[in-house]
Design a protein around this nucleic acid. Structure first.
Lengths: 255, 255
DNA sequence: TTGCTCCTCACGTCACGTGAGGTGGC
DNA sequence: TTGCTCCTCACGTCACGTGAGGTGGC
């Protein structure tokens, strides 16, 4: 059987079989030393099927070589299993990011100064170590959601968190707000405020980049910025659309 | 802001920023023509955040360039969405293949001649176009499973299909068998038979490769093979462990 | 003699990582 | 003067695809 026939039977190209040979994965049974033609037999066909089977598991050709030479196949498969699990999580996050981007108007809106209207919200405070801020906010949001839902009088529209811009050592105080649709207690009214804001779609790990950039933009435009940041989560979950905002200090002459 | 500071704030390396520049994605605000040092401002920081956001969607740098230059971002995102969906399906299939391989003893067992014992089975026949064979088998298996389950007297252990080795033009006849645990009607007893068999783990698309290889192995060993193949599905679903077998013709002198 | 298959290089892919070898700023 | 950051090449990665340029078999 020559290379073309083996290739057809394995549903690969001759180039692929030459590549396997170069890696020492699948050597011809013999080579005609006059013409250079490769010849293959049933053993090579079986090995070829095995290689295609391991490719179906997503193993690299190097890993396949280890398995076919009798290596620790269980360890190799478990390693690949972990990789695939990671890839699945990454692609699910990418899908969520794409959908958030499709839901948003633009890829990254221009930062704008807006006068945010007053709104009713149920607010709780939490303390957190700086590097535990993300999980703390997520836990608090879940708790708030359950308590507002259990109360039954109001419904959550979305959630926001407010915390200091500069995270120093030691615990920081976070305010988490459930934006609700009725202004009765325990909801309070958050007053209208001026914000420098930008909308972001993607994983929460991008949020620090965004408010860091907002700071520069504010400095560039000569805006007097406050020292807290507000993250307004338009979707639940760790991937989605988020408004990132820094309050603009209102004119001092008003005092 | 120099390249190191921008890189730190975007959580990438300076090398990455130079790479973006080479692709025309993110150019410095200015370059000191004496030292070659690059300088960046708030505009570049914002663009950098946008680029990282689009990377979180898994877009290629070329696609990101199109989006940041005002291209048809919705079409680009939908294209990537389709890619990611494909990748998710592929990785789920890889995971199933890995688990099937871990469940099997070896990566691809040596083909063996075995005397398969007799077993009780519920059998139905179906006709199919050659290129519809896979879906036909899958549908028939589902139907059989429901009917055996609805009957309530027997339980399916696994399923097998038997069809002609040579698929010519025109419809072929397939026999699908549910292997059950009690020998009462409608179950019949499939007699013991000699088989040349090999176990495969992976997608069903690999099965034709396997029985094609079995044919060569049989010829090589001088075995008189029959003209049908039997696929014995040890798992449900389109990915899993399967025994592929070709009957060995029993000695003609026995007639 | 004409197609068909085969052969051997060797470049290109994608998003950088990683030196090598050298220079400017505090 | 010593670290630190910066600079410009340029090779390597992974599994082949895709020519280029040439030869053997029916």
């Amino acid at each position: 059987m020559n290379i073309g026939e083996l290739a057809r039977r394995l549903r690969v190209t001759p180039r692929t079989l030459r590549h396997y040979e170069q890696l020492g994965l699948l050597r011809p049974e013999s080579i005609d030393h006059r013409t250079g033609y490769r010849a293959y037999g049933p053993q090579q066909l079986l090995l070829g099927v095995q290689i295609e089977q391991l490719k179906a598991a997503g193993l690299s050709l190097a890993a396949i070589g280890e398995v076919t030479e009798g290596g620790a196949s269980e360890a190799i498969l478990l390693e690949r299993r972990a990789e695939v699990t990671t890839l699945l999580a990454r692609h699910r996050a990418q899908l969520a990011t794409i959908d958030a981007l499709l839901g948003a108007r633009a890829a990254l809106a221009e930062p704008r100064v807006v006068q945010a209207p007053a709104f009713p919200a149920v607010i709780v405070r939490a303390m957190s170590e700086p590097d535990e801020l993300g999980p703390t906010i997520r836990r608090t949001v879940q708790r708030l959601r359950r308590s507002v839902h259990g109360d039954g009088r109001a419904r959550c529209r979305s959630f926001s968190a407010r915390f200091p811009l500069e995270l120093v050592d030691g615990p920081v105080s976070v305010e988490v707000a459930a934006h609700v649709d009725v202004a009765a207690p325990p909801a309070v009214t958050v007053p209208s405020q001026q914000l420098l804001t930008v909308e972001l779609a993607g994983p929460v790990s991008l949020l620090p980049l965004a408010y860091d950039a907002l700071l520069d933009v504010g400095r560039d435009r000569g805006l007097p910025l406050g020292d807290t940041v507000i993250e307004h989560y338009l979707d639940l979950g760790t991937v989605g659309r988020t408004e990132v905002a820094i309050p603009v200090r209102t004119a001092l002459r008003a005092r």
